[in-house]
Amino acid sequence: MAAAKQRIEQQPAWVLHTYPWRETSLIVEIFAREHGRVALVAKGARRPHSQLRGVLLAFQPLWMDWSGGGEVKTLVRAEWQGGQPLLIGRALICGYYLNELLVRLTAREDPHPRLFDAYAEAVRALGRGEAESPILRRFELALLQELGYEAGLANEGDSGEPVRPEGRYLYIIERGPVRLEALEEEGAALDPAALGEQPLLSGQTLLDMAAGDFSRAETLGQSKQLLRMLINHTLGGQPLQSRRVLKELQEL
Protein backbone atom coordinates (compact mmCIF):
# COMPACT_ATOMS: atom_id res chain seq x y z
CA MET A 1 0.00 0.00 0.00
CA ALA A 2 1.39 3.35 -0.98
CA ALA A 3 1.91 5.78 1.86
CA ALA A 4 -0.07 9.00 1.78
CA LYS A 5 1.61 11.80 -0.11
CA GLN A 6 3.56 13.75 2.41
CA ARG A 7 5.88 16.68 2.63
CA ILE A 8 8.90 16.55 4.89
CA GLU A 9 10.66 19.76 5.82
CA GLN A 10 14.00 20.69 7.34
CA GLN A 11 15.05 17.14 8.00
CA PRO A 12 18.67 16.61 9.09
CA ALA A 13 20.14 14.20 6.56
CA TRP A 14 23.33 12.93 4.92
CA VAL A 15 23.80 11.88 1.32
CA LEU A 16 24.97 8.26 1.15
CA HIS A 17 25.20 7.78 -2.58
CA THR A 18 24.03 9.35 -5.82
CA TYR A 19 23.61 8.01 -9.29
CA PRO A 20 22.61 9.64 -12.57
CA TRP A 21 18.99 9.46 -13.62
CA ARG A 22 17.67 10.50 -17.00
CA GLU A 23 19.41 13.34 -18.79
CA THR A 24 19.97 15.87 -16.02
CA SER A 25 18.74 14.39 -12.76
CA LEU A 26 20.16 12.42 -9.89
CA ILE A 27 18.81 9.72 -7.66
CA VAL A 28 20.05 10.53 -4.18
CA GLU A 29 20.16 7.90 -1.50
CA ILE A 30 20.02 9.73 1.84
CA PHE A 31 20.05 8.84 5.52
CA ALA A 32 17.67 11.10 7.42
CA ARG A 33 17.36 11.31 11.17
CA GLU A 34 13.63 10.63 11.50
CA HIS A 35 13.08 8.68 8.28
CA GLY A 36 16.08 6.44 7.84
CA ARG A 37 17.29 5.66 4.35
CA VAL A 38 15.24 7.41 1.66
CA ALA A 39 15.66 7.60 -2.13
CA LEU A 40 15.02 11.01 -3.66
CA VAL A 41 15.09 12.25 -7.21
CA ALA A 42 16.90 15.57 -7.51
CA LYS A 43 15.53 17.07 -10.69
CA GLY A 44 17.98 19.01 -12.80
CA ALA A 45 20.81 18.40 -10.32
CA ARG A 46 23.21 17.50 -13.13
CA ARG A 47 22.67 20.68 -15.13
CA PRO A 48 25.91 22.66 -15.41
CA HIS A 49 24.80 25.51 -13.18
CA SER A 50 22.58 23.62 -10.78
CA GLN A 51 22.74 25.02 -7.25
CA LEU A 52 22.33 21.46 -5.99
CA ARG A 53 25.64 20.31 -7.41
CA GLY A 54 27.77 21.68 -4.64
CA VAL A 55 25.26 20.72 -1.97
CA LEU A 56 24.39 17.09 -2.66
CA LEU A 57 27.76 15.77 -1.55
CA ALA A 58 28.27 12.80 0.69
CA PHE A 59 29.79 13.37 4.14
CA GLN A 60 28.24 16.83 4.49
CA PRO A 61 25.45 17.56 6.99
CA LEU A 62 22.36 18.82 5.18
CA TRP A 63 18.84 20.00 5.83
CA MET A 64 16.50 18.48 3.29
CA ASP A 65 12.88 18.93 2.22
CA TRP A 66 11.13 16.35 0.09
CA SER A 67 7.64 15.30 -0.92
CA GLY A 68 5.85 12.35 -2.45
CA GLY A 69 4.41 9.04 -1.39
CA GLY A 70 6.02 6.51 -3.68
CA GLU A 71 9.21 4.59 -3.22
CA VAL A 72 11.27 7.43 -4.70
CA LYS A 73 10.38 10.89 -3.38
CA THR A 74 11.09 14.25 -4.94
CA LEU A 75 13.76 16.44 -3.44
CA VAL A 76 12.38 19.92 -2.86
CA ARG A 77 15.29 21.63 -1.14
CA ALA A 78 18.73 20.82 0.18
CA GLU A 79 20.75 23.16 2.32
CA TRP A 80 24.24 22.77 3.73
CA GLN A 81 24.38 22.89 7.51
CA GLY A 82 28.03 23.85 7.44
CA GLY A 83 30.88 23.20 9.80
CA GLN A 84 32.12 20.01 8.22
CA PRO A 85 35.28 19.97 6.10
CA LEU A 86 35.33 17.68 3.06
CA LEU A 87 36.78 14.31 3.94
CA ILE A 88 40.15 13.64 2.43
CA GLY A 89 42.53 10.75 2.10
CA ARG A 90 42.01 7.60 4.10
CA ALA A 91 39.20 9.23 6.06
CA LEU A 92 37.28 9.52 2.80
CA ILE A 93 37.69 5.83 1.99
CA CYS A 94 36.55 5.03 5.55
CA GLY A 95 33.52 7.25 4.93
CA TYR A 96 32.60 5.16 1.90
CA TYR A 97 32.76 2.09 4.10
CA LEU A 98 30.27 3.64 6.55
CA ASN A 99 27.97 4.58 3.69
CA GLU A 100 28.11 1.14 2.15
CA LEU A 101 27.24 -0.44 5.49
CA LEU A 102 24.18 1.80 5.79
CA VAL A 103 23.09 1.19 2.20
CA ARG A 104 23.51 -2.55 2.52
CA LEU A 105 22.22 -3.15 6.02
CA THR A 106 19.39 -0.72 6.68
CA ALA A 107 15.98 -1.02 5.08
CA ARG A 108 14.38 1.88 3.21
CA GLU A 109 12.33 4.22 5.38
CA ASP A 110 13.16 2.45 8.58
CA PRO A 111 13.96 5.25 11.05
CA HIS A 112 17.11 4.87 13.15
CA PRO A 113 17.68 8.14 15.03
CA ARG A 114 20.31 6.63 17.35
CA LEU A 115 22.23 5.18 14.44
CA PHE A 116 21.91 8.52 12.66
CA ASP A 117 23.58 10.23 15.60
CA ALA A 118 26.32 7.58 15.67
CA TYR A 119 26.88 8.10 11.93
CA ALA A 120 27.00 11.90 12.30
CA GLU A 121 29.53 11.58 15.13
CA ALA A 122 31.64 9.16 13.07
CA VAL A 123 31.74 11.44 10.02
CA ARG A 124 32.52 14.48 12.15
CA ALA A 125 35.32 12.61 13.88
CA LEU A 126 36.71 11.56 10.48
CA GLY A 127 36.53 15.22 9.46
CA ARG A 128 38.50 16.22 12.55
CA GLY A 129 41.23 13.83 11.46
CA GLU A 130 40.95 11.51 14.48
CA ALA A 131 42.36 7.97 14.40
CA GLU A 132 40.13 5.95 12.09
CA SER A 133 40.00 2.53 13.72
CA PRO A 134 38.14 3.49 16.92
CA ILE A 135 35.68 5.56 14.87
CA LEU A 136 34.90 2.60 12.62
CA ARG A 137 34.63 0.13 15.52
CA ARG A 138 32.24 2.41 17.43
CA PHE A 139 30.04 2.82 14.37
CA GLU A 140 30.03 -0.88 13.52
CA LEU A 141 28.98 -1.67 17.09
CA ALA A 142 26.22 0.97 17.01
CA LEU A 143 25.00 -0.44 13.69
CA LEU A 144 24.90 -4.03 14.93
CA GLN A 145 23.11 -3.00 18.11
CA GLU A 146 20.58 -1.06 16.06
CA LEU A 147 19.98 -4.08 13.83
CA GLY A 148 19.15 -6.17 16.86
CA TYR A 149 22.48 -7.64 17.83
CA GLU A 150 21.83 -6.42 21.31
CA ALA A 151 23.50 -9.60 22.57
CA GLY A 152 25.22 -8.53 25.74
CA LEU A 153 28.95 -8.14 25.49
CA ALA A 154 29.38 -7.66 29.21
CA ASN A 155 27.58 -10.84 30.19
CA GLU A 156 28.36 -14.45 29.39
CA GLY A 157 26.05 -15.94 26.83
CA ASP A 158 24.73 -18.97 28.67
CA SER A 159 24.84 -18.11 32.34
CA GLY A 160 24.30 -14.38 32.10
CA GLU A 161 27.11 -13.91 34.59
CA PRO A 162 29.30 -10.85 34.21
CA VAL A 163 32.24 -11.32 31.83
CA ARG A 164 35.51 -11.79 33.73
CA PRO A 165 38.22 -9.35 32.61
CA GLU A 166 40.93 -12.03 32.78
CA GLY A 167 38.79 -14.72 31.09
CA ARG A 168 39.26 -15.92 27.51
CA TYR A 169 36.17 -16.00 25.34
CA LEU A 170 34.78 -16.93 21.97
CA TYR A 171 31.76 -15.04 20.67
CA ILE A 172 29.23 -17.49 19.35
CA ILE A 173 26.55 -16.03 17.13
CA GLU A 174 23.09 -16.17 18.71
CA ARG A 175 24.63 -17.27 21.98
CA GLY A 176 27.03 -14.52 22.99
CA PRO A 177 30.42 -14.65 24.70
CA VAL A 178 31.30 -18.12 25.94
CA ARG A 179 34.33 -18.88 28.07
CA LEU A 180 36.90 -21.23 26.57
CA GLU A 181 36.79 -23.44 29.64
CA ALA A 182 33.04 -23.84 29.30
CA LEU A 183 33.46 -24.84 25.65
CA GLU A 184 36.12 -27.34 26.60
CA GLU A 185 33.79 -28.86 29.15
CA GLU A 186 31.21 -29.23 26.42
CA GLY A 187 33.86 -31.12 24.52
CA ALA A 188 33.62 -28.76 21.56
CA ALA A 189 36.38 -29.25 19.05
CA LEU A 190 38.75 -26.40 19.73
CA ASP A 191 41.25 -26.97 16.99
CA PRO A 192 41.82 -23.72 15.11
CA ALA A 193 40.50 -25.05 11.82
CA ALA A 194 37.09 -25.78 13.31
CA LEU A 195 36.87 -22.30 14.74
CA GLY A 196 37.32 -20.69 11.36
CA GLU A 197 37.56 -16.92 11.65
CA GLN A 198 36.38 -16.96 15.26
CA PRO A 199 38.64 -14.55 17.10
CA LEU A 200 39.80 -15.32 20.62
CA LEU A 201 38.70 -12.48 22.89
CA SER A 202 39.86 -11.40 26.29
CA GLY A 203 37.17 -10.57 28.82
CA GLN A 204 38.62 -7.10 29.06
CA THR A 205 38.01 -6.57 25.34
CA LEU A 206 34.34 -7.45 25.73
CA LEU A 207 33.97 -5.15 28.72
CA ASP A 208 35.75 -2.30 26.89
CA MET A 209 33.49 -2.75 23.87
CA ALA A 210 30.39 -2.71 26.05
CA ALA A 211 31.64 0.56 27.54
CA GLY A 212 32.54 1.99 24.14
CA ASP A 213 36.20 2.30 25.16
CA PHE A 214 38.60 1.47 22.35
CA SER A 215 41.74 2.93 23.87
CA ARG A 216 43.54 -0.39 24.47
CA ALA A 217 45.42 -1.82 21.50
CA GLU A 218 44.23 -5.33 22.29
CA THR A 219 40.61 -4.17 22.40
CA LEU A 220 41.04 -2.45 19.07
CA GLY A 221 42.57 -5.52 17.41
CA GLN A 222 40.20 -8.13 18.82
CA SER A 223 37.06 -6.02 18.38
CA LYS A 224 37.97 -5.47 14.74
CA GLN A 225 37.98 -9.22 14.12
CA LEU A 226 34.80 -9.78 16.11
CA LEU A 227 32.87 -6.94 14.45
CA ARG A 228 34.04 -8.04 11.03
CA MET A 229 32.79 -11.54 11.69
CA LEU A 230 29.40 -10.26 12.87
CA ILE A 231 29.04 -7.85 9.94
CA ASN A 232 29.96 -10.54 7.43
CA HIS A 233 27.36 -12.75 9.06
CA THR A 234 24.69 -10.02 8.75
CA LEU A 235 25.65 -9.38 5.13
CA GLY A 236 25.01 -13.02 4.37
CA GLY A 237 28.29 -13.59 2.60
CA GLN A 238 28.00 -10.73 0.08
CA PRO A 239 31.38 -8.95 0.15
CA LEU A 240 31.61 -5.20 0.71
CA GLN A 241 32.87 -3.24 -2.31
CA SER A 242 34.61 -0.58 -0.22
CA ARG A 243 36.54 -3.25 1.64
CA ARG A 244 37.63 -4.83 -1.64
CA VAL A 245 38.75 -1.45 -3.00
CA LEU A 246 40.77 -0.75 0.12
CA LYS A 247 42.39 -4.18 -0.10
CA GLU A 248 43.26 -3.71 -3.76
CA LEU A 249 44.78 -0.34 -2.97
CA GLN A 250 47.02 -1.88 -0.36
CA GLU A 251 48.17 -4.47 -2.88
CA LEU A 252 49.18 -1.95 -5.56
Partner: peptide, 19 residues
Protein backbone atom coordinates in the same frame (compact mmCIF):
# COMPACT_ATOMS: atom_id res chain seq x y z
CA UNK B 1 36.90 7.67 -11.20
CA UNK B 2 37.22 5.56 -8.11
CA UNK B 3 33.77 4.85 -6.70
CA UNK B 4 33.72 2.15 -4.05
CA UNK B 5 29.94 2.06 -3.79
CA UNK B 6 29.60 1.46 -7.53
CA UNK B 7 32.25 -1.23 -7.40
CA UNK B 8 34.82 0.81 -9.32
CA UNK B 9 38.17 0.13 -7.72
CA UNK B 10 41.81 0.37 -8.77
CA UNK B 11 41.48 -2.74 -10.91
CA UNK B 12 38.56 -1.37 -12.95
CA UNK B 13 40.42 1.95 -13.39
CA UNK B 14 43.62 0.21 -14.47
CA UNK B 15 45.68 2.25 -12.03
CA UNK B 16 48.64 -0.04 -12.68
CA UNK B 17 48.82 1.45 -16.18
CA UNK B 18 48.93 4.98 -14.74
CA UNK B 19 51.65 3.99 -12.27
Amino acid sequence: RLSPLDGVGPRELRLDKLI
